[in-house]
Design a protein around this nucleic acid. Structure first.
Lengths: 204, 204
DNA sequence: GGTCGAAACGGACCGTGGTCCGTTTTCATT
DNA sequence: AATGAAAACGGACCACGGTCCGTTTCGACC
């Protein structure tokens, strides 16, 4: 072996800034995402194969996989899009979900909204799972937000943990169990969460 | 259409007891489960293919799939085994996990135990997911148990919901986020859950 | 022990997710 | 405009999950 130079052995451009995406790459990503989106809407997620997506986008399969890594990665990107829209509502939309309302009202609005969102996206969430990137983004944004609101409310204790604990019952897998198996009506879930929040926030 | 008889229209053997499993079927199920178990232990779950399992068990692939339906089904069975052992501890083992200790102590022991169990089985739980049967068994046993303990404690409110909400932060997906991504130490998770329980149970 | 229907067997076969690698495109440099 | 290397393309190819169906085995009844 004969490595050209030990890493760090020369003054490479120290802040190796990543090149902007090549134009064909950018174009293909857009086309692929649109194709995937359309197909999912048309037939439902399970009836969409990766070959379908590539074909509809008039792009090679290799390209599809290079861009998104796996099927989960592709679905994750689709999900991320709506997720980001929702996040924008939370960060900058109208109250009570967005800023402007008192923290407790925001928190309750957050819970109601998150329940419906997660149930709405159940299929996508399921199809997206794993891919290191996603779960990170989603779980941690919600947790951070709740954490922030709990701090506003002056809650004492291990606030980061409490935030996680409050977000947990809003997770799709839990909601799904309640709605599908136990036939719990939506309103009861939302009311139940509200009660939970009040218990957790109540000062002792 | 010409249905033979409306359901209940004739005195069919009323308690249509399902025939006992044929001996070859029973034998093969055992052999397959053992093979799967061994392979998973040897190489880790991801490196075990269904063909591997069938081959090791000296059984046709068709048989494997007829017995367990899907890969998830097979892994689900593996999981169910340990799950049942744990359930036995909860139902009839020594206190404080089992009966005999005061409800609050049992509840806290339950949480601690469940955290380690779910983290321990993370891989299997992930591989087992879906298959209608499993998630049912696991989620609902734990929820029912917590619900029972909350009732013992005289908690007021929507106890079934509260039980679900307390179980949720113990779910693998949530724990995993905390342990792997946020590097939260185990003890803090357990302490956090304990605090959560006290807040929920506290009478107002 | 012989007969027969139901149930189980097993392995060839198929569809889909994912990889590999020779070819084409882009774009910075001149 | 020409050049060249890095990056992207695309489709043949592979492996694994899951199905199908002709063959074998079981066991209840004679």
């Amino acid at each position: 072996m004969d490595l050209p130079l030990a890493p760090g052995g020369r003054e490479l451009p120290l802040l190796q800034r990543e090149r902007p995406e090549r134009s064909d790459a950018a174009h293909n990503r857009e086309v692929l995402l649109r194709a995937a989106q359309e197909l999912v809407e048309e037939r439902g997620i399970d009836a969409v194969t990766m070959d379908d997506v590539a074909r509809r986008a008039c792009v090679g399969k290799g390209t599809l996989f290079r861009r998104f890594g796996t099927r989960e990665g592709l679905m994750g990107q689709l999900l991320d899009h709506s997720e980001r829209e929702w996040q924008a509502q939370v960060i900058g939309g109208p109250p009570p979900l967005g800023p402007g309302a008192p923290p407790m009202e925001r928190l309750l609005a957050f819970g109601r909204s998150r329940v419906t969102l997660n149930l709405h996206h159940a299929e996508l969430i399921e199809a997206a799972r794993h891919p290191a990137a996603r779960s990170f983004g989603a779980l941690s944004f919600t947790t951070m937000h709740v954490r922030y609101l709990l701090e506003q409310l002056g809650v004492q204790g291990d606030v980061p943990y409490l935030a996680t604990a409050l977000v947990a019952p809003l997770e799709m897998i839990v909601l799904r169990q309640q709605v599908n198996r136990e036939q719990v009506p939506l309103e009861r879930i939302q009311a139940g969460w509200e009660d939970l929040v009040r218990r957790v926030v109540a000062d002792h």
